[in-house]
Every structure is written in structure tokens, then in C-alpha cells.
């Protein structure tokens, strides 16, 4: 069953505090979190989170297309590495 609309999206309170601190600090920081079920809010865009996958923290650079998704979606707990034949990384 879907979450009730009146509650709003779930975000762990500590994550909101850390995001506020990161934005007000103005520095390039990474926010560590174990809260994989927290929803990505519009105010998180541009921040970098390190989401725990049970073993390691996976950095997630939040973009506007991620809004509404959960952090856990970007830190898989099971890995298939595959082959990146002609995959390109862009800075």
C-alpha cells in the first residue's frame, strides 16, 4: 500500500539536518547516511551523499531526475560489474 499523502515523503530527520548544514556551510562535503529508505527531496539537488550498501558507502551525486526516488536505489547491495566496452566517464 502506498504511503499516505498527508504524511509527506519520508526522510530521516538527521539527513535533513545534515543537508541544511552542508548547504549553509558552502563547502563541498559528502553526507554519510545509512538511511536507504529516505526519499530524495528537491532541496538535496547538487549535494553528494554516501549511501551505505551493507559493506561500503556509495557516493551519490543528486540530480533533479532523482527527486522522489529513494537513496537505496542508487547503492545496490548486489553487484554485477559487467564489461564497460565503450562506456565513457564524463567529468
Amino acid at each position: 500500500m502506498a504511503r499516505s499523502v498527508w504524511k509527506g515523503p519520508y526522510v530521516h530527520p538527521s539527513l535533513l539536518k545534515k543537508a541544511d548544514a552542508a548547504r549553509s556551510g558552502g563547502k563541498n562535503v559528502i553526507i554519510r547516511t545509512y538511511s536507504r529508505s529516505s526519499t530524495i527531496l528537491p532541496s538535496f539537488v547538487g549535494l553528494t551523499f554516501a549511501v551505505y550498501n551493507g559493506q561500503k558507502f556509495i557516493p551519490v551525486l543528486v540530480t533533479d531526475t532523482m527527486i522522489g526516488h529513494k537513496f537505496g536505489e542508487f547503492a545496490p547491495t548486489r553487484n554485477y560489474y559487467g564489461h564497460g566496452a565503450d562506456k565513457k566517464a564524463k567529468k
Binding site: N28, V51, I58, L61, T63, M66, A75, K87, K91
Partner: peptide
């Protein structure tokens, strides 16, 4: 290796002491 789980390209780095970690691949961090 280089990986991407949907949250941007990541460098997977092994430190000289054996510890492994992910690092964001962006102009600001690399």
C-alpha cells in the same frame, strides 16, 4: 575500476594499505 550505479561515475580506488573506497568522478573531485 570505474562504476556507475545511477548516481554518477565513480572511481573504485584501492589504497596502498588495502582499503577500497569509491570516489566521485567530477571536475571538482578529480
Amino acid at each position: 575500476s570505474v562504476r556507475n550505479y545511477g548516481g554518477g561515475d565513480l572511481l573504485y580506488i584501492r589504497r596502498r594499505n588495502g582499503e577500497e573506497f569509491y570516489h566521485v568522478f567530477s571536475a571538482a573531485t578529480v
